[in-house]
Design a protein around this nucleic acid. Structure first.
Lengths: 196, 196
DNA sequence: AGCAGACTAGACAGATCTGTCTGGTAGGGT
DNA sequence: ACCCTACCAGACAGATCTGTCTAGTCTGCT
């Protein structure tokens, strides 16, 4: 049925809903934003919303997966010659984004705070993101010759989460040079001049 | 008016409300738990609740401040001979708590996710906690002879937040030895055997 | 004795939430 | 001509939320 030309271009109404939800969920939180508000700002009828999503939770899950897609895309578009530079580019990018005025923290950490049950589909989708990110770190580290990529990836995960929280709750620019040094040290690329 | 003997022992009804709220807010989130549920489980009349708290937000703020009080108390009760050992003890304690079955992440990070406005009183109280913790780190580091305690404290803050998130969203026991090594390296106490 | 304050039980108002349902329009494929 | 799908507008049910209010009990101080 969805054979327009070749693949499914996703209906415009659905896209409008997902875009609006992504914006509102991120800036105001999931439980604080109701369906009525979303469909009003998306300019979509209620029946249309429930035609595309079985329930609100499904929209929340779609929001999480959309965030994952966007972050993967952003990571792929970062240009770097070599795995070490790629790793640094990922964290530099995070620091830049964290310093923007509309930064509101990590969407995955924030959403998880509103879904306590680890078995909930939303939490599963959040897990998927974290698995992807950790895998990305591990692959780049292995490629860069890290002898214990698994362990170092866990360390980078720690820094990632810490950076996201710090940019949200504390001074959003202070941790940036700090993080760069920390990442450099962790991936074994510290120069003598970069003492912490 | 509250001159019973010398200070205010806080009414038992109020304590019951705050205890119940602390439990429910932490395990299920703030917006997901209603006043009706809290007063029912606390065994308190609605009028009594509104007699002690002007609104739900005030209870949320009291919850945050109660969490701060508890964490301060826990930190003070950690025995250690020397600032370096005290620092390690704080992080060891965090790792232990993070591994417990009922660990649900950092209450401050979680609550902040539900209060996007940084000017909100709840966010201010969260800020107070974070200021206290950073100060504690800074003082211990200075005492331990760290030449750049400010900077190292920021690094420890990063590890703290990363540990709390990891214990909540990932494997709750994996990061523990990792964190100990990371803290040791950051505070300049790495032995040769503790290679990361 | 009398009064103030802490407390209980629960009705109530008004808003808001999710999800369903009715009814109707427009366009594309067959 | 026909039908299917996507879409819009909005009423509606039923639950739940916060916060107010009435009405009455119990305790301890003065």
């Amino acid at each position: 049925m969805p054979a327009k030309t070749s693949n499914a271009p996703k209906s415009p109404a659905r896209s409008r809903v997902l875009d609006t939800a992504t914006r509102l969920f991120y800036t105001e939180g999931v439980h604080s934003v109701g369906i009525d508000r979303i469909i009003a700002e998306a300019g979509v009828a209620k029946a249309t919303f429930y035609h595309h999503f079985p329930a609100k939770d499904a929209l929340v899950q779609a929001y999480i997966e959309e965030q994952t897609r966007m972050q993967r895309e952003a990571a792929e578009q970062l240009e770097a010659d070599g795995p070490r530079e790629k790793l640094l580019a990922v964290f530099d990018h995070m620091g830049r984004v964290g310093g923007l005025a509309d930064f509101r923290g990590c969407p995955f950490i924030n959403a998880a705070a509103e879904y306590p049950d680890p078995a909930h589909p939303v939490r599963r989708s959040i897990e998927d993101y974290r698995t992807w990110f950790r895998e990305l770190m591990r692959e780049l580290l292995t490629e860069a010759g890290d002898p214990d990529a698994e362990r170092t990836a866990d360390l980078l995960m720690l820094i990632r989460d810490g950076l996201a929280v710090a940019c949200d709750l504390d001074d959003p620019v202070a941790p940036r040079p700090l993080v760069r040094d920390a990442v450099l040290r962790v991936i074994g690329g510290a120069r003598d001049g970069a003492e912490v």
